[in-house]
Every structure is written in structure tokens, then in C-alpha cells.
Design a protein around this nucleic acid. Structure first.
Lengths: 226, 226
DNA sequence: TAATTTTGCTGATATACATCAATGTTAATA
DNA sequence: TATTAACATTGATGTATATCAGCAAAATTA
């Protein structure tokens, strides 16, 4: 929970965003950031609260989700190098989503004013921030497309592909999320996640054993995704 | 179709974005923009094409939608002062959506390089662009929430509230869209739009007569929206 | 003006999916 | 280690919503 002795200048977890900052700019960030450890299941960002900080994940996975009285919708499972809370760049805004830790997390919380300042002085950084915003838009558009146009098996296939290609970058992985979370990712009932995982397993598309999943027939998944 | 004699300096359709530009900056835009007229049903942006321009709507309504082989999803009905195509700010990107005219449109097409240049020289403008990106994110998140959590009547209620509050800014309006479009907005079958409009009409929540709609019981709609 | 296409409307039917209920299994806590 | 709670699983049932079919009305085109 302590402000990092961790020095921004020599930080080897820097996102592309920070790559081209001058030493002076990095110093500014260092003076206005804290490094924080979150334990599994702790809330990092709470939906509805004032958006006044930028977060940068150094280690571990989080889930970003829209809260709802009955049922949540997970927008993204994100990990190392993810910037969170860019909503804060424009003041007087509230977070539209919550973020909680799926495992132990190390992140840097950076004061939004410094980010705003450096966006003025450093054109490259400014571009990177806009890129990040655009990529967020792209991601949630994909999500929207997936949920509005595809049916259950396609949506689950999409989720599995995402885990394999992006989150774990391995066709064999151990889930950090529950079946209920999988249901929140794909916007279906938990029971259907279970049933479909079994069906995929029986069809030898994937191999499921508890939280361990191995993708056997990738192209079949891609086909289901359509 | 001609480059406007329309002078940016004296344009009275300027969006907030352009409000604080210097005369010189406005001149730069003027030299790198064309004013274009689109007729009803013409395509302004085609999904999948290279994103290389910024558009600014001066007059008329457009629909922004995700194309899909079987069924489209309308993200937004937008009008005067809307900036389109900010995806272009980062190069080598394709549009993730299409835009077509719902009526005769006047818009300015601005070269993305000038926009990028002015974002460097003018901090206020830069902030406005980021605000615009953030507001896009917020809108899509709302849509995602609506489609994933609400059922048919709630989704249609949402759409009607949006028409009344934002698009037409009047509780009595004449739709520029077909029932099929309404179905694409709410992600339901066209038949259900018809049935629900009739039901709302019978319950004296709204008064429907063809494309003319009047909202009678606004609070009932708000209730349905939950 | 007639002919054709698109849009709007209505009821009947089908189905994808959620919900419910019941039970096993693992993980957290005392 | 016992106790509780959260998670996972399976089958049976219900329902919201899509699909289909058929026709009327408007709008476009010939």
C-alpha cells in the first residue's frame, strides 16, 4: 500500500504510452502517483463514483463490468499494461463501470492532472491516450455486436477465443473466473455456460476439467463464433 | 457538392469543439475541408472502409449502425453538431460502423491531418475531442446495458425517451425512421415494434398515428425503462 | 393510372433461452 | 475437523421473443 520506492524512470512495466516520455515528465508522474496492491476480489473502481484518477495495471488480472441490481455484464478481462479510468480526463464525470481484482494486483494510481499536463507537453503521449480511447470504443462495439447478433454457443466461443488469444495467450489455460463470471461475460445464465462447456467438451472442441481448459479444435470455435 | 463558399470563420453551425479556435486555425480548417450535401438514404460512411476523414454534421439526421449479414444494429441517431469518424485520428484503422442519411444532409468533411495538427496547437480543442470520444464510450455502454439487461418494452421505452428528449427535443414528433429501423435500434423483430407501439398506444402511454408519435405519459415510459 | 415494391400490421407457431428445483462439490470459516 | 457458504451441475418446466405466413396500406416506379 506504500508509495512505490518503485522509480518510474527505471520501471520495466511501462506501457507504450509512457515509452517516449522525457525524464522530466516521468519524474512528474512519479511525484503524483502511488503504487497500490489489491488482493483478490477487492474493488478497484466502483461504478457511480467520481472519476478522478487514472490507473495503470502493472501485474495481475481484473474484471471490468457494468453493475446491475440483478445481473452484471463483464465488459473485459484486462491485465498488465491496461490503462483504466480515462473517463477521468474530462472532469465532472462518474465511472460507468466497476473494476475488481481477479487475483492479487499491483497497479499505479496516477493523478489525472499530471496526465492532462503531459498530454499537452508530449504529443506522442497524447496520441497514445487517444489510441487507447479508440481501442476501448472498438472493444465495446465488438461486445455489442457479439451480444446483439450471436446466440449462446457463438458468444461462448467468442469468450473462449478471447481467453486463448488475448488474455492467457495460450490454447491451454486455467480460468481466473467462475462459471458465473463466464455467464456475465457472455450475458447468459450460468446453467447455460455449464451445459455449453460440456457440449463443447463432448464434441471434442475443448477439453474441460474444472477451471482448466484446453482448446483442441480452434477452427471449430471460430466457426461457432459466426 | 461544392467546396463551401461557406466560410469557417463566420459559420454559425460551429460545434463547441471549434468555438475557441483562433482565426488562423479556422483558416486551416477552411482550406482543408469540403462541404457536402447528401440525399436521403445515401451512405456517408461505409463500415470496413479506411478511416481517413472527420465529419461534422451541419444539418439533418443520420443513423450510425453496425452492419451484419442478417440484421443491423443502430447505435445512434445523430444530428446537427455531431462529429463523426474520430476513429480516423489513429491511422491505419477501418470504420467499425456505417452512417447513412435519414434526410437531406449538409456536412463538412475535414482532413484528419488538420484536426491532428490543431489538437497540438489548441489545448481546448484537444480536450473537446477527448470529451467527444468519452461521450461516445458512454453512449455505447448505455446501449450495451440497455440491450443486455432490459426486455422488449423497456428497450422501446428507452428509444422513445431518446427521441423525445434528445433527437427531436419535443414530446410530439414525426419519426424519420421506419419500424424496421426502430427494430434495429432496440434489437428486436420489426413485428414486436409494431405490437408494442400498439400496446403503448392502447395503454395511453403514447399516441401513435403512422410516423407521428406523441408521448402522453412520460413517467410511465420512464417506469417501463427500468 | 396501373403495377410493383416497400412498409406496416396481425395472429399462429416455434424455439432459444431463462428460471426453477434439487443435489453434488469445492472452498472458506469457525 | 466440522460447518457453512459459494460454486458447479443436471434435468424439467416456463416464457419471452423470433419466425412464419398472409394481407393491407402506403410509397415508389413504370
Amino acid at each position: 500500500m506504500a508509495n512505490g520506492s518503485a522509480n518510474c524512470l527505471f520501471c520495466n512495466n511501462k506501457s507504450v504510452c509512457f515509452n517516449e516520455l522525457t525524464d522530466d515528465e516521468l519524474k512528474q508522474i512519479e511525484d503524483n502517483k502511488v503504487e497500490i496492491l489489491y488482493k483478490k476480489d477487492e474493488t478497484i473502481i466502483k461504478q457511480g463514483s467520481f472519476a478522478s484518477n487514472i490507473y495503470f495495471i502493472k501485474k495481475g488480472l481484473v474484471k471490468i463490468y457494468i453493475e446491475n441490481s440483478d445481473r452484471n455484464l463483464i465488459l473485459e478481462i484486462a491485465g498488465k499494461s491496461k490503462m483504466l479510468g480515462l473517463t477521468s480526463l474530462n472532469h465532472t464525470k462518474h465511472y460507468k463501470f466497476s473494476v475488481t481484482a481477479l487475483e492479487d494486483i499491483v497497479l499505479c494510481q496516477i493523478n489525472v492532472e499530471v496526465i492532462n499536463k503531459i498530454m499537452i507537453t508530449n504529443q506522442f503521449f497524447n496520441t497514445q491516450v487517444i489510441k487507447s480511447l479508440n481501442s476501448t470504443i472498438e472493444k465495446i462495439l465488438d461486445k455489442l455486436h457479439c451480444i446483439s447478433h450471436k446466440q449462446l454457443n457463438g458468444r461462448l466461443a467468442d469468450a473462449l477465443i478471447c481467453f486463448s488469444d488475448e488474455i492467457y495467450q495460450n490454447n491451454k489455460f486455467t480460468l481466473n473466473v467462475t462459471r458465473k463470471d463466464l455467464a456475465s461475460i457472455t450475458n447468459m445464465a450460468t446453467e447455460n455456460v455449464v451445459r455449453l462447456l460440456k457440449e463443447f467438451n463432448d464434441k471434442k472442441i475443448i477439453k474441460v476439467s474444472g477451471k482448466n481448459i484446453e482448446i483442441i479444435n480452434y477452427s471449430a470455435l471460430k466457426e461457432l463464433s459466426k
